[in-house]
C-alpha cells in the first residue's frame, strides 16, 4: 500500500493488486494442502468406519480446494502463467515446497490424527495471518479456509481425546503416533514464528486433556521441505498423483 510509488522495479508481470507477496511462500501454503489432500484421499475405504471415510475425504477436498485457489494465484504472481494443473502435475519433486510432515506415508489411524491435529493447528494460525495478506486473492482464500481448517482441527481434537482417553491399546498407539510425528514439527514451527506458539499451546492443551504425555525431544529433525528437499516417500506420492495427467496431457472429462 505504501509501496505504490516504489513498485516500478517489479512492474514486469504487474498484477492488478496493490500488495506484493512472495510466490514461493504462497506455493508452500498451496503444496501443504495439495500433498496432504493426496494422502488423506488414501483413507477412502480404509478408515476404521464409513463416517471416517467421509470425514477424511471431505477434509482432503477442502484442502484441495484451498490448493487450487492458491496454485492458480501462484501462476499469476510468479509471471510464468502456469495454471493450477501445470503446477500440480508438471512440477518435479524439487519444485514442491510442502513440509515433509504431509508427505509421510499413511500410518495407522492414530498417526493420522496426530498429523491432522498438528497440521491443522499450525495451518489455522498461518491462515489467520494470511487473511491480512496484501494480496487480495491470498487473503480471500485464507478467509474461507480458516473456517474449514478450524473444523478439521476440531475433528482431530475429538479423536485424539477419544484415543488418548480410550483403551490401553488406543492410548499406546496415540502416544506412539505423537513420537513418530515429533521430528517433523520444527519445519512447521520455523515456518511461522508468530503462530507456532499459539498452535503448540492448543495441541498441548488437547494432549493434557487426553491424558497423553508430551513426547520426548526427538533426536533428529526433518528439514528442507520449503526449499524442495523431500523424503523418499515424496517421489512415490507424486508418481501416483501425476502419472495419469502426464500420460494423457490435456485430457479432460
Amino acid at each position: 500500500m505504501t509501496e505504490a510509488g516504489s513498485g516500478a522495479a517489479t512492474a514486469a508481470g504487474a498484477s492488478r493488486h496493490a500488495g506484493r507477496v512472495d510466490p514461493l511462500v504462497v506455493l508452500g501454503l498451496a503444496d501443504d494442502a495439495l500433498v496432504y489432500a493426496q494422502r488423506l484421499g488414501e483413507w477412502l475405504t480404509r478408515a476404521p468406519e464409513i463416517e471416517e471415510d467421509m470425514a477424511l475425504g471431505n477434509i482432503g477436498l477442502d484442502l484441495l480446494g484451498q490448493a487450487r485457489g492458491l496454485l492458480t494465484r501462484v501462476g499469476e504472481l510468479d509471471g510464468t502463467g502456469r495454471d493450477e494443473d501445470a503446477l500440480a502435475f508438471w512440477r518435479d519433486e524439487r519444485e514442491f515446497r510442502n513440509v515433509q510432515l504431509v508427505e509421510r506415508p499413511r500410518g495407522d489411524f492414530a498417526h493420522e490424527m496426530a498429523r491432522l491435529l498438528w497440521f491443522s493447528a499450525h495451518r489455522l494460525e498461518r491462515l489467520r495471518q494470511e487473511q491480512q495478506s496484501p494480496d487480495e486473492v491470498v487473503a480471500g482464500v485464507a478467509g474461507k479456509a480458516v473456517k474449514e481448517v478450524a473444523y478439521h482441527r476440531d475433528h482431530a481434537t475429538q479423536w485424539v481425546l477419544r484415543l488418548g482417553d480410550g483403551t490401553e491399546e488406543s492410548r499406546a498407539r496415540m502416544q506412539q503416533a505423537l513420537v513418530d510425528v515429533a521430528p517433523y514439527l520444527p519445519e512447521l514451527t520455523e515456518d511461522d514464528p508468530v503462530g507456532a506458539p499459539v498452535a503448540r499451546e492448543y495441541v498441548e492443551a488437547v494432549l493434557a486433556e487426553a491424558g497423553l504425555g508430551a513426547p520426548p525431544e526427538p533426536r533428529w529433525h526433518a528439514r528442507g521441505g520449503r526449499t524442495g528437499i523431500h523424503s523418499e516417500a515424496m517421489g512415490f506420492l507424486l508418481a501416483e498423483m501425476q502419472h495419469l495427467h502426464r500420460t494423457h496431457p490435456g485430457a479432460s472429462w
Binding site: A150, Y151, R153, D154, T157, V206, E209
Partner: peptide
Amino acid sequence: AAGQASRPVPVGL
C-alpha cells in the same frame, strides 16, 4: 459455532 468454543479444548461431540 465451528471452532469458536469458549473453552480452549472443546471436549466431546
